[in-house]
Design a protein around this nucleic acid. Structure first.
Length: 680
DNA sequence: GGGCAGGTTCAGT
DNA sequence: TTCCAACTGAACCTGCCC
């Protein structure tokens, strides 16, 4: 009832709740210019709200918002001196990157127009002119341009697509057909650049520098001719982008889609002008999350604005990430043709209706092991790292891996080891199981089969092991380590942030009634000087705590070893946690205005976000503690009073605090936001 | 401190 | 009616061991 009222009141305040549900489905995409974005957003929201998927998306969204808050706080704490110092570092880095600019190559990016849909129309002309999507009710792979006008697009669930466009025709995927047509296009590409790079069935990069020179014609003419030839050979249209590097060529191929092309001259001024107004989301490697962070933390919307925020970027991101962002600001990208790259992993996964039926889950595991083994045999692969991927009924993704002494490939071996990994996770309700094998035996590449020789082999295979890539091959030998003092000087201590406070208070950070931080299992320190004074549990305390052990859920190998005790412990923990939880829920009401809004920063988080709200509370608590001059005294009080408990629903993720020596304080890892992405 | 293993996250198609 | 995929690569974290 209370929840209902709360929902109604929030609906009154926000009559368009779908506007805050961030989906990728309303982003600009070729063929979607005239789409009623608000309608699409509303339909997607209404089809999604209340579902487990939606709840998971909200959890993720709240987590990103929290991350953004942390980063904003970090920026706000920088002194003019700090900013000036980091600006110099950024300027130096920009100059070094600028020196790597290569305008001597001409790259062509080819992107087939709505490839799967176009192939299907080719084989069934009656589909022409009708809205059509390739895929099924759960997910569609691509949609033709008629369907896109309704807001239907790739990676959208079919049932939402049908709601947007009731007359939508669904066609099942047929990869044999797509591979056939893809091969036809590649024959054409080969005649322009024998070393062309494929990125998927429908995309490729060609270095057309030589062909332009040899034939004495412009890149625009080559692109025009190539597209005509592709059409002649396949009956399919494609779009092309020409630019001095691959990053820009990819952006350019999207500009005049479908069946068009765009040429960006090999000229620095032209590149910088092009970049100046280019939205960051257009760049490959900047996705939904990164866009959100760059926009909401730094106010960066266009690529050029990256350079204006160079100092902050250098403070808050890792070396490689900062380099990537600054390169984007300069319009730099890959220009050399990379070496042949071998497959690094192979996987197989299947989604099914969520179930906790063990027999069913083991059956699925066996089926996936069979399929994976067959794929590996077909490619002659043997690997020694096996990763089990699970998606729970609530859409939480987990992975568990094991590295073996010997290389495996047979279905029996895969299943044997995968079963051990799965067993350690049960009981759990799952909707997806996947298996991935990596760390291949490199025998097929002429390397030794002994895993111990792998390091040397890797070195030989990769060429210069010391080379650090920016984009994909720009070599930058300069020393910029000073700008990344945080990573270099970090010392880790751990703090499990799923604790629940037991102390009642009116002002959540009033020293008179501080939450009790006396958690035996959690090492916690506030000041640099205390780094050595990390509170470690005594052996007796550990023993005592074992009844409700939070250590038990730390990682899978522990789980496997203590599986028998594990279950009993969880039972015991659950009982205590329930008591603790009901108590803490009452207390936190003072922290959350109207049981919804943070009394410190105003961020809104619904009462159902128990875990996220606790994390948020802890963040402000840490902030407050760090500001306290009498930190030690306060800490003593806290350590005496606070009792932690654990949300049984949480999965034991241990959040870390890191010591930033320069600032002389500890920060949760999230505040550093060390970006992890292959493109950075 | 470096290397390895395990894990998480993001991104693209 | 159906109700949010499959696959791969990669960066970078922590913990552990030598």
């Amino acid at each position: 009832m209370e929840k209902q009222e709360s929902q109604n009141s929030s609906l009154d305040e926000n009559p368009k709740p779908w506007q805050s549900y961030h989906t990728v489905y309303t982003n600009a995409k070729a063929g979607m210019d005239g789409v009623d974005k608000e309608k699409v957003q509303r339909v997607v929201y209404e089809m999604s709200k209340g579902s487990k998927y939606y709840e998971n998306e909200e959890r993720k969204e709240a987590f990103i918002r929290q991350k953004i808050e942390h980063m904003r706080a970090r920026c706000a704490e920088l002194t003019p001196h700090d900013i000036s110092h980091h600006q110099k570092v950024a300027d130096k880095r920009v100059a070094e990157l600028e020196a790597t600019r290569d305008l001597s190559r001409t790259w062509l990016h080819i992107d087939m127009d709505a490839f799967y849909a176009a192939v299907e129309t080719l084989s069934n002309p009656s589909l022409k002119g009708k809205p059509m999507a390739v895929g099924g009710m759960s997910m569609i792979s691509t949609a033709n341009y008629e369907a896109r006008r309704f807001g239907v697009r790739a990676a959208m669930p079919g049932f939402i697509a049908r709601k947007l466009c009731p007359e939508l025709i669904f066609v099942p995927t047929d990869f044999k057909k797509y591979t056939y047509y893809s091969d036809l296009t590649r024959k054409v590409f080969h005649s322009y650049d024998p070393n062309f790079m494929v990125t998927s069935l429908d995309e490729a990069y060609l270095d057309i520098t030589e062909v332009c020179r040899e034939r004495g014609i412009s890149s625009a003419e080559i692109a025009e001719e190539l597209r005509a030839r592709v059409y002649k050979e396949t009956g399919l249209t494609c779009s092309a982008g020409v630019a001095p590097n691959r990053l820009l060529a990819k952006v350019c191929s999207d500009i005049n889609k479908p069946n068009g092309q765009f040429v960006l001259p090999n000229d620095r001024m032209a590149v910088m002008t092009f970049i100046s107004s280019l939205p960051i989301r257009k760049i490959g490697g900047i996705g939904k999350v990164t866009e959100h962070i760059l926009r909401d933390v730094f106010g960066i919307n266009t690529c050029e604005e990256m350079l204006g925020k160079g100092s902050f970027i250098c403070v808050l991101f890792s070396n490689s990430t900062a380099d990537f962002f600054l390169s984007v600001g300069l319009g730099l990208g890959g220009t050399a043709t990379p070496q042949i790259r071998f497959r690094k992993s192979i996987s197989n996964e299947r989604t099914f209706s969520a179930t906790k039926d063990k027999a069913f889950l083991y059956q699925k595991l066996a089926e996936i092991a069979d399929m994976l083994s067959a794929d590996m045999e077909r490619e002659g692969l043997h690997g020694r790292t096996l990763t089990l991927k699970l998606k729970t009924a609530s859409f939480e993704v987990r992975s568990r891996a094991v590295t073996l002494q010997k290389y495996i490939c047979s279905s029996e071996d895969i299943l044997k080891h995968a079963s051990v990994l799965l067993k350690a996770e049960l009981p759990v309700s799952l909707r997806l199981i996947g298996l991935r094998v990596s760390q291949f035996n490199e025998e097929k590449f002429g390397a030794p089969t002994d895993p111990t020789q792998k390091t040397l082999n890797k070195f030989i295979m990769s060429g210069d092991a010391s080379r650090k890539n920016v984009g994909d091959e720009n070599s930058l030998g300069s020393d910029v380590s000073d700008q990344h003092f945080m990573q270099d000087e970090e010392i880790s201590i751990s703090l499990d942030i799923h604790e629940t406070s037991h102390c009642e208070f009116t002002n959540p950070f009033d020293n008179k009634c501080v939450p009790n931080l006396d958690d035996d299992n959690h090492r916690f320190a506030y000041n640099v000087g205390e780094a050595e004074n990390i509170i470690e549990p005594s052996s007796d305390e550990i023993e005592e705590e074992n009844g409700v052990s939070r250590f038990l859920e730390a990682n899978s190998s522990d789980s496997q070893q203590s599986e028998g005790r594990h279950h009993d412990r969880i039972e015991a923990a659950n009982t205590l946690d329930k008591e603790a939880l009901s108590s803490s829920n009452q207390e936190s009401k003072n922290f959350w205005v109207d049981d919804y809004k943070c009394s410190i920063c105003g961020i809104e988080m619904p009462p159902t976000f128990i875990e996220e709200r606790q994390e948020h509370f802890d963040f402000h608590l840490a902030q407050r503690l760090q500001k306290e001059e009498s930190g030690t005294k306060l800490r003593t009080q806290i350590l005496q009073q606070r009792r932690f408990s654990k949300d049984p629903a949480s999965h034991g993720k241990r959040k870390k605090l890191k010591l930033n020596k320069k600032e002389g304080r500890y920060l949760p890892i999230d505040m550093f936001f060390v970006k992890s992405n292959q493109n950075f």
